[in-house]
Simulated scan of single mutants.
Amino acid sequence: MGGTVFFDYDGTLHDSMHLYGPAFRRAYAALVTDGWAAPRTFSDEEIASWLGYSPAAMWASFMPELPEAIWQRASAAIGEEMRRLLAAGAGRLYPGAKAMLESLREEGCTLVFLSNCSGSYRDEHLAAFGLGGLFTGAWCAEDFEGLEKWQIYRQICARYPKPHLMVGDRHHDQEVAVHGNIPFVGCTYGFGTADELSRADVLVSTAPEIAGAVRALTGKPRGHP
């Protein structure tokens, strides 16, 4: 089949709420204890809305009044708790996600990991789920400080064989496709809204469906029937 498929991670391959939900609630409780936040409860949907953002963008939107040192401490606490939960076996890929990646790889696709996560998060998760050998490249926002995901794509895209295709669940992923003029597979089972996937060429409701969508779109420029 050939070509390169760029994959978002959280909300596309990894069901992050198994780790992020408990970690977020614990970090927020610490902010309350320290007097930086008022007590409140959060639904899973509200917490999930922050997934896919870089830490700086998430805190700037969620609690812009927090001093940088405080949100950085809270962000680090979330990361540490997620790391602990991952090591304890609490992490979960979406059903069929790894088999889908293996299938695309066997069919000749180059697979590239492209996420707004940190480098340590990327490395720990690729190791925990045995995904490292499936990706030819693994890039994260920390590798390109200050750049949006679509700008990162522009920095790295020439390294990989064409045609290119983006798979993801958030507006950051759709922007990669729009700015790069490449097809986009939108994952409705992830954490984005319908508006965030409004320009997807194909929508999928499960991870295994991605393989068929890639086969259908490979070789088609964005917007072509």
Rank of each mutant, 00 (worst) to 15 (best):
T12V: 07
D15C: 10
G89V: 10
Q174E: 13
S16C: 12
P55N: 09
G212N: 11
R92G: 04
V202M: 13
S103W: 02
Y9Q: 08
L217I: 05
W139V: 14
M17V: 12
D195M: 12
E175I: 04
R40W: 08
A23R: 07
E80P: 03
R199T: 13
C117K: 14
P95Q: 10
E106N: 09
R199A: 13
G35E: 08
G79E: 07
G2H: 13
R159K: 14
F144A: 08
F7G: 00
T4K: 01
L165K: 11
D44K: 13
P39A: 14
Q151P: 00
A194G: 05
V185M: 10
Q174D: 03
A38Y: 08
N116A: 06
Q72C: 02
G21F: 10
F6Q: 03
H179G: 02
E175V: 08
S120K: 05
I70A: 05
A37K: 10
A48F: 07
F42G: 06
S115D: 03
E106K: 14
P221H: 09
A138P: 02
G190C: 04
D173H: 11
T41D: 15
E45Y: 02
A138F: 08
A194D: 13
D123M: 07
L85C: 04
H125K: 14
W150I: 04
G2M: 14
G35F: 08
V5P: 05
F62W: 15
L134F: 02
L104D: 01
E107V: 07
L66T: 02
Q174A: 11
P163W: 07
N116F: 02
F62M: 12
H14S: 09
F6E: 00
I78M: 14
M17S: 00
R25L: 13
S205A: 15
R170G: 01
L111G: 01
G146D: 01
A158S: 14
H18C: 05
H14Q: 12
S118L: 12
V178A: 10
T136S: 11
G96Y: 06
A158L: 14
E148D: 06
L126D: 02
S115Q: 10
D143I: 07
R159F: 08
I70F: 04
W36V: 11
L85S: 01
M58N: 07
L86E: 09
G186H: 02
P39G: 09
L104H: 01
L104F: 01
T206A: 09
C109V: 12
L101H: 02
A56F: 14
A90D: 09
C140F: 01
L31M: 04
E65W: 12
L197Q: 03
L93T: 04
E196V: 04
G146H: 06
V112A: 04
Q151I: 13
L93G: 02
S61P: 00
V185H: 09
L197P: 00
Q174C: 06
R222E: 00
A29I: 12
D143N: 11
T110H: 08
E145K: 15
R215S: 01
R25Q: 10
L31Y: 06
L51A: 13
F113E: 03
E145D: 05
A76D: 10
P183G: 05
L197R: 11
E80S: 15
T206W: 07
S103C: 03
N181Y: 04
R199S: 09
W59M: 11
M63W: 11
V204G: 04
G2C: 10
V176K: 12
